[in-house]
């Protein structure tokens, strides 16, 4: 069973690193932020698997915190950064 967990974990970690490419490439800021949001979801998945693999039940609490706070960056981006960029591009 732990072999399956390990394998899944490795695949998830590799998908994180592939996700970095999307953030570097962009091309727009929104694409970069969405890739970062994907990181958050994958991070939650990794934490839940780690909680079983280690075993460390507190990792589930960390996953919960991460899942709840993932939206914060997206809201901050839309309300603070995105609007000002789009007006800059209009000029």
């Amino acid at each position: 069973m732990s072999y399956i967990y390990g394998f899944t974990l490795f695949i998830l970690l590799v998908s994180l690193i592939v996700g970095v490419m999307r953030i570097i490439q962009g091309p727009r800021q929104a694409d970069r932020l969405l890739a970062a949001q994907l990181f958050g979801t994958t991070g939650v998945a990794i934490l839940v698997i780690l909680a079983e693999l280690q075993p460390l039940p507190a990792a589930r609490d960390t996953a919960l915190v991460l899942a709840l706070l993932a939206m914060l960056a997206a809201v901050a981006f839309v309300s603070r950064v995105w609007k000002t960029t789009s007006t800059n591009e209009d000029h």
Binding site: V20, R32, L47, Q54, A73
Partner: peptide, 19 residues
């Protein structure tokens, strides 16, 4: 902007590392 995004990711991966 890219630096900020990567800084957020750093926090996330560091949390994984601490676990």
């Amino acid at each position: 902007f890219q630096s900020v995004i990567f800084f957020i990711l750093l926090g996330l991966t560091l949390a994984l590392g601490w676990i």
